[in-house]
């Protein structure tokens, strides 16, 4: 690592303005009170469904469960052909081939977590092998975790280098790249300042997406954290011209929550990000609630869990 690169990286990160915690939380709460009704709500629910990375990351995952999940991602509501499909299926690397096979040419992506998810506690060689494995199995997107220990102890060069190396490991033989999402595990980063720093760090290292959490640590995604990250991607595009996506993950369970996030995206970064290519929800139970709300809007009466799948 050239010392000049390190110095300029540190300079940029140290030059970031601090986050006004009280103002940030008030702003996020304020945006959460917007009332989205009728046709706007219908539109928002369909958009949210199309942004879901339908996720299963359990030790008990089986090929059968992954196939069922992939089928659900393609046709979330089999009784209604107008229901949009989800954006992607998110699984562990060893399940990528099964998910890929089930999704076929549906156009849905397979996202794979990698780099010793969720803790990230392994040597770089193991993390890169994990990543190459997933890419070779056909993953379209790689969700990597940063080394929070290194980040918190100030060793940001190590974090930077790992992201760069993982990005290189995402390369396919034909010259294309699997999309790289970088997970910060914001629940472990302690402060909003750190979230802002980590966002810039990851984007400068080449992340295509920045993602809040693994879903394995509480608190997972929150509105204020996502707001900080949205501001970061907005400012980063203003500065460099490169657009980076945002993915809140974990803890988003209701349509109401999802719509709050969409309102925030629209207010902070605008239309450009209101698209599954640039904003995703990492979720599993959220999709069922979106489907129940969708059924409610279409039929005029409340639906129930008997009318969606058990995952």
């Amino acid at each position: 690592m050239a010392p000049t690169a390190t110095a300029s990286l540190r300079k940029t990160l140290d030059g970031l303005p601090g986050v006004d915690q009280v103002g940030l939380e008030a702003r996020a709460a304020g945006l959460g009170t917007r009332s989205i009704k009728t046709t706007s709500k219908q539109w928002a629910i369909d958009l949210a469904i199309s942004m879901v990375d339908l996720t299963t990351l359990e030790g008990s995952d089986t090929p059968g469960k992954v196939r069922a999940l992939a089928n659900k991602a393609m046709r979330p509501d089999p009784t209604d052909p107008t229901c949009p499909s989800a954006a992607a299926v998110c699984v562990y690397p060893d399940m990528v081939a099964i998910a890929k096979d089930t999704l076929g040419d549906s156009g849905l992506n397979v996202a794979s977590v990698a780099t010793a998810f969720p803790s990230g506690r392994a040597s770089l060689a193991v993390k890169l092998a994990d990543t190459r494995d997933a890419v070779a199995a056909g993953a379209d997107e790689i969700d990597m975790v940063i080394d929070r220990g290194a980040f918190l102890s100030g060793n940001i060069d190590l974090v930077f280098d790992e992201i760069v190396a993982t990005k290189e490991a995402c390369a396919r033989p034909d010259g294309s790249h699997a999309h790289l999402k970088v997970i910060f595990e914001t629940g472990e980063l302690q402060t909003y300042d750190n979230v802002r720093k980590a966002s810039w760090l990851a984007m400068m290292a080449g992340a295509d997406f920045i993602k809040t959490s693994t879903g394995k640590v509480q608190p997972a995604a929150t509105l204020p954290v996502t707001l900080v990250m949205l501001e970061a991607v907005r400012d980063f595009r203003d500065e460099t011209g490169r657009q980076v996506g945002v993915k809140p993950a974990g803890g988003i369970r209701t349509s109401k929550d999802a719509i709050k996030y969409l309102v925030m995206v629209n207010e902070i970064v605008g239309d450009d990000w209101l698209d599954p290519d640039w904003f995703r929800f990492g979720a599993s139970t959220l999709l069922n609630d979106l489907l129940m709300q969708r059924q409610k809007m279409l039929t005029g009466h409340y639906s129930g869990p008997d009318y969606v799948t058990l995952d």
């Binding site: 005029g300 009466h301 409340y302 639906s303 129930g304 869990p305 008997d306």
Partner: peptide, 9 residues
């Protein structure tokens, strides 16, 4: 009426 039409009641 909302309870009567609720599919989970």
């Amino acid at each position: 009426p909302w309870l009567a039409s609720h599919m989970d009641v």
